[in-house]
Design a protein around this nucleic acid. Structure first.
Length: 619
DNA sequence: GTAGGGTTAG
């Protein structure tokens, strides 16, 4: 009798111990607990222990539990079997989970949901998960919100948006579409298919939203280029009292990178530190990218160094891409070597970045060396992006025939960006013959892109082929093709000021034009001559000079000089490539005002200092 | 007992 009581106390003691651990523990169960699992003969104790093993991903404890289940003959118990499947799933032992599921003579909805959930966690199992879902339908087992949310996010991408819409319809029919998990999964899927309108409709109509819903919507926006909406949502989430997590912060930082809003990006950097997400890989890599895209390559490198503890390939890639963007090819190359010394193998993204760095510096031999290294040493299969980089490298280095040959023999169809790159190179190196070939393809692929027609006309103009220039002008006029309007942005005191070419709406525009006129007078003393050779407008020379003088980046720099203290650099973002005249203007302006000027155009960064540009006039 | 979210790429 006394022994029995002692045994009961022993079991009770375990029950309390296991129960406490299953609620609070983030660590694996102590080895003694796992060893003593054989003593636990109460079903509730085993259940607690199974939960604990699933939570802590302890396969040793989990297998011991399974052995105990068999020993005491609870194999047929549905609840216990479900817990075993879940434990195996969390311990990444999918085969064991599948075996247990198949052995069950009677399955509950939870059994189906658990095995489907287990299969969705890796790419190989997703097809099987979908098959099981279809099998469920055939067998007449009703699904619920758990089934749909598992299936939606991981498996739906294998198919088209129509399948996702069908799953959406299923959930409406089953009246589970208002469930928070289902809604979040649905908006995530629609955003992945770039149907941001549907995603935001679902978000707005959800009766209950949690922090995952908000961060999924933010991620959806930022991945589809809706940067302003991302930041708006971030502020709304703050207003609604949701504590920002690392998911939200990384999306918000990416939005700042897209918008090049340095002030807000810095605020988010401070928030991430304060919230303890400073060492999160996603936050760190988006911060590196944000600083690089805002023109602050030193700050990007500081974040990179600070993330030393948690280095991942993405952090290396983000930094190499940052260096490439700023045409710091030697730094990118050093990092490329260093990453390998630290045991990281370059991946396809690393190679896109390193090739891009070579392209911006005209390093065609080095570019070819990296391309060969990618194939021979790292056994990576070059994608269309890598070929695109190589076309750019050869073209920019003046090897236009080599670029064309590569387009002809590569295993992909040429993209418009490749022909565009070749056309731009033909303009720089004056190759009319290849320019016409590239333009022919471009006109077919992008008939409404005025920039391509203008580029070809510029080549004719440079070669004094005036008849062709006139023909190109006529074509532009007849088809009413207009080039995207030049716009530049500058951030001053947390506010973004935007200027279009010939801007009239800015509240201080008269003051800006007056100041710009004064500056031009001063720059002319430094031999500044307005270069109208790139201007195709069918107007007099004096009018051309006026149009060039009012280019958006000139207005933005003038406003920056008026508003920003002399000790800080002036940062400008532009929607088009900087023109030759503005490039000379910025160089002279940096010398005349002793200011550092940083311009981000569509291609790259230009750091102007003491009359020189970091691109060494190669862009 | 079972479910949903993030970073780097011309």
């Amino acid at each position: 009798m006394k022994t029995l009581r002692r045994c009961e106390r022993f079991c009770d003691c375990y029950r309390i111990h296991i129960r406490k651990l299953s609620v609070i523990s983030d660590n694996k169960p102590e080895p003694s607990l796992v060893e003593n699992v054989v003593h636990v003969e109460r079903v509730s104790n085993l259940h607690y222990l199974l939960q604990l093993c699933a939570k802590t991903r302890s396969s040793v404890g989990g297998r011991a539990c399974h052995a105990q289940v068999i020993r005491v003959g609870w194999e047929m118990d549905v609840l216990t079997s479900n817990m075993l499947i879940n434990m195996y799933s969390k311990c990444s032992l999918v085969d064991s989970a599948r075996k247990k599921f198949n052995e069950m003579p009677v399955k509950s909805l939870v059994s189906w949901n658990t095995i489907i959930g287990a299969l969705t966690h890796n790419a190989e199992g997703q097809e099987e998960a979908l098959t099981l879902f279809i099998q469920m339908q055939r067998e007449g087992t009703p699904f619920n919100e758990f089934t749909i949310s598992s299936i939606l996010c991981k498996c739906a991408f294998k198919y088209a948006i129509l399948e996702c819409m069908q799953l959406h319809a299923f959930s409406i029919k089953a009246a589970i579409d208002s469930n928070c998990f289902v809604g979040t999964a649905l908006l995530h899927v629609y955003a992945k298919f770039s149907s941001i309108k549907y995603a935001s409709q679902i978000f707005d109509s959800m009766p209950e939203k949690n922090v995952v819903t908000w961060s999924s919507m933010m991620a959806g926006y930022v991945q589809n280029g809706f940067h302003e909406e991302t930041l708006l949502l971030f502020h709304n989430a703050q207003f609604m009292g949701f504590e920002q997590d690392a998911f939200m912060i990384s999306s918000a930082v990416s939005a700042c990178a897209g918008l090049a809003t340095l002030v807000e990006g810095k605020q988010l950097h401070a928030i991430s530190h304060k919230s303890g997400f400073g060492s999160n890989i996603y936050v760190s890599s988006s911060l590196i990218d944000m600083y690089a895209k805002c023109g602050c390559i030193r700050e990007a490198y500081l974040v990179f160094q600070g993330a030393m503890e948690v280095w991942s390939i993405v952090l290396w890639n983000a930094m190499i891409s940052g260096f490439a963007r700023h045409a710091y090819a030697p730094e990118a190359m050093i990092l490329f070597e260093k990453m390998q010394q630290r045991g990281f193998f370059p991946d396809d993204v690393t190679y896109v970045s390193i090739l891009n760095a070579c392209s911006h510096m005209g390093l065609h031999e080095e570019g070819q060396k990296y391309f060969d290294l990618m194939v021979r040493q790292h056994k990576l299969s070059p994608s269309v992006l890598h070929f695109s980089c190589m076309v750019d490298i050869f073209g920019r280095a003046g090897l236009v025939h080599k670029a064309y040959e590569l387009i002809e023999r590569m295993p992909f169809n040429a993209t418009s960006s490749m022909w565009g790159s070749l056309l731009a190179s033909c303009r720089v190196y004056g190759n009319i013959e290849l320019a016409e070939i590239a333009a022919k393809h471009l006109f077919e692929m992008e008939p409404n892109n005025a920039g391509n027609h203008i580029l070809l006309a510029n080549i004719y103009a440079a070669n004094e082929k005036w008849d062709e220039v006139a023909r190109a002008r006529k074509l532009l006029r007849e088809n009413d093709l207009k080039k995207e309007r030049g716009t530049s942005w500058i951030e001053i005191k947390n506010k973004v000021h935007s200027f279009t070419v010939g801007e009239r709406n800015h509240p201080q525009i008269d003051e800006i034009y007056a100041k710009l006129d004064d500056l031009v007078v001063e720059l002319k003393k430094l031999n500044y001559k307005v270069d109208t050779s790139n201007d195709l407008h069918d107007v007099e020379e004096s009018r051309k000079q006026m149009l060039l003088r009012h280019h958006s980046e000139k207005l933005a720099i003038t406003f920056g000089l008026m508003c920003l203290p002399s000790c800080i650099p002036i940062r400008i973002i532009k929607n088009l490539r900087i023109c030759g005249d503005c490039h000379i203007f910025m160089k002279l302006m940096s010398k005349f005002t002793s200011r550092e000027i940083i311009v981000r155009d569509t291609n790259r960064f230009h750091h102007f200092k003491d009359g020189f540009c970091s691109c060494r006039d190669f862009w």
